[in-house]
């Protein structure tokens, strides 16, 4: 379970990297399309927008949920806490993404909170690694 925990937190980190790359690519793609006489309207979504939407609204939330569930069984000191914080930050990230449609300024917080998600996931990953390095301590689920 500890290796699964570690893998899941690592996948969330990879997801973060995919997301920042995809969203940058999406908007450069828009600039390029508009340059070619394309229109950017209500339903315009290019491949990179779709990657960002699927990874952000589906893949990462599922990974964060799985991390939380796995944390109950993984017996990592602080494991549940960091998984729960990661999950909370991911939920906040999705909320901020959609709040940004009404209040575009909120989009800035979405960008900043992405760093929080990445930071929390990397702490979770480190906790799993540290727990692996030490002999299994007799800790309670907490």
């Amino acid at each position: 379970m500890r290796s699964v925990y570690r893998a899941l937190s690592g996948l969330i980190l990879i997801g973060f990297v995919v997301q920042i790359a995809a969203i940058a690519a999406a908007w450069f793609q828009v600039l390029n399309d508009v340059d070619d006489g394309g229109v950017f309207d209500n339903n315009t979504r290019n491949w990179a927008h779709i990657v960002h939407a699927v990874v952000g609204a589906e893949v990462i939330p599922l990974l964060a949920l799985a991390l939380l569930v796995v944390s109950f069984f993984a017996r990592i000191p602080g494991g549940v806490k960091w998984a729960a914080l990661t999950f909370g930050a991911v939920v906040l990230q999705v909320v901020l993404a959609f709040a940004g449609y009404s209040v575009p300024g909120v989009g800035a917080l979405h960008g900043l909170n992405a760093l929080v998600v990445a930071g929390l996931a990397s702490v979770a990953m480190r906790k799993a690694r540290e727990a692996d390095a030490k002999p299994a301590p007799p800790v309670a689920v907490a």
Partner: peptide, 22 residues
Amino acid sequence: MRTSTRAAVAVVAALAVLGPIG
């Protein structure tokens, strides 16, 4: 905490998260 108790708590916690979603 004994292993069996710990496992039970983990299962309950997992169900508390997954149950409503399901």
